[in-house]
Computed example of a mutant assay.
Amino acid sequence: MPRNSRSSTCRKAINSSADLFHSATGKAADKELDRIDQLFYSYASNSSEIMYPEGIESLCSDLEVDHTDVRILMLAWKMQAEKQGFFTMDEWRKGLKALRADTISKLQKALPELENEVRRPSVFPDFYSYAFRYCLSEEKQKSIDIESICVMLDLVLGSQFRPQVDSFVQYLKSQNDYKVINMDQWMGFYHFWNEITFPSLSNYDPNSAWPLILDNYVEWLNSE
Rank of each mutant, 00 (worst) to 15 (best):
Ser159Arg: 00
Val218Lys: 05
Ala24His: 08
Ile72Cys: 15
Met79Glu: 15
Phe132Ser: 06
Glu139Gln: 12
Leu172Ser: 15
Leu33Met: 10
Glu138His: 15
Gln185Trp: 07
Lys83Thr: 10
Phe124Glu: 04
Leu172Lys: 14
Lys109Val: 01
Ser61Trp: 10
Gly188Leu: 08
Gln185Met: 05
Ser174Pro: 01
Tyr204Cys: 10
Ala18Trp: 07
Lys179Arg: 02
Thr25Phe: 04
Ala131Gly: 04
Asn207Ile: 01
Ser8Gly: 13
Glu115Asp: 04
Arg3Ser: 09
Val180Arg: 06
Ala29Pro: 01
Arg6Val: 15
Arg120Asn: 00
Pro163Glu: 03
Ser48Asp: 06
Phe86Gln: 05
Leu107Arg: 08
Asp184Ser: 10
Asp69Ala: 15
Ala209Tyr: 04
Leu214Met: 04
Ile36Thr: 07
Pro199Cys: 01
Cys10Ser: 11
Tyr130Phe: 12
Gln141Tyr: 01
Asp145Glu: 09
Leu63Cys: 00
Trp92Leu: 08
Asp205Trp: 02
Phe189Tyr: 15
Met79Lys: 12
Thr68Arg: 13
Thr68Asp: 11
Ile36Pro: 05
Asp205Val: 03
Leu63Arg: 03
Ser148Asn: 11
Val118Lys: 00
Met89His: 05
Tyr134Trp: 09
Asn207Val: 05
Ala101His: 01
Leu214Phe: 06
Asp34Asn: 14
Arg3Asp: 05
Glu138Thr: 11
Trp220Gly: 03
Ala81Lys: 05
Lys109Glu: 04
Met187Glu: 11
Asn176Arg: 07
Asp184Phe: 07
Ile72Gln: 15
Lys179Gln: 03
Ser159Tyr: 00
Glu195Trp: 12
Leu73His: 12
Ser148Val: 14
Glu54Lys: 12
Gln185His: 02
Lys12Met: 15
Ala81Glu: 02
Ser167Arg: 05
Arg100Tyr: 09
Ser208Trp: 00
Ser167Lys: 03
Asp30Pro: 01
Ile146Val: 07
Ile213Trp: 04
Ser48Glu: 06
Ile146Asp: 06
Asn4Cys: 10
Asp62Arg: 13
Gln108Ser: 14
Ser5Glu: 10
Phe87Ala: 01
Phe87Pro: 02
Lys106Asp: 01
Lys142Thr: 15
Phe86Leu: 06
Thr25Val: 07
Asp145Leu: 05
Lys27Cys: 08
Lys97Asn: 01
Pro206Val: 02
Ser174Leu: 07
Glu219Ser: 00
Ile149Leu: 05
Ser148His: 15
Trp77Tyr: 09
Cys10Val: 11
Ala28His: 08
Phe40Ala: 15
Arg35Tyr: 03
Met89Trp: 07
Lys83Ala: 14
Asn216Leu: 07
Glu138Trp: 10
Val65Cys: 11
Ile50Glu: 11
Ser45Gly: 12
Ala98Cys: 05
Leu73Tyr: 09
Ser105Gly: 02
Glu195Phe: 11
Arg133Asn: 10
Met152Arg: 14
Arg93Ile: 04
Val65Arg: 13
Leu96Ala: 12
Gly85Val: 00
Met89Gly: 03
Met183Ser: 10
Val123Gln: 04
Tyr43Trp: 14
Glu49Thr: 00
Glu147Phe: 11
Ser200Gly: 03
Trp210Tyr: 02
Ser48His: 07
Ser16Gln: 10
Ser143Gln: 06
Ile146Glu: 08
Pro112Leu: 03
Arg119Lys: 02
Lys173Val: 13
Asn4Asp: 12
Gln38Pro: 02
Glu113Thr: 00
Val169Thr: 13
Lys31Asn: 13
Asn4Val: 12
Ala24Phe: 08
Tyr204Ile: 13
Asp215Asn: 11
Leu157Trp: 12
Lys78Phe: 05
Val123Thr: 03
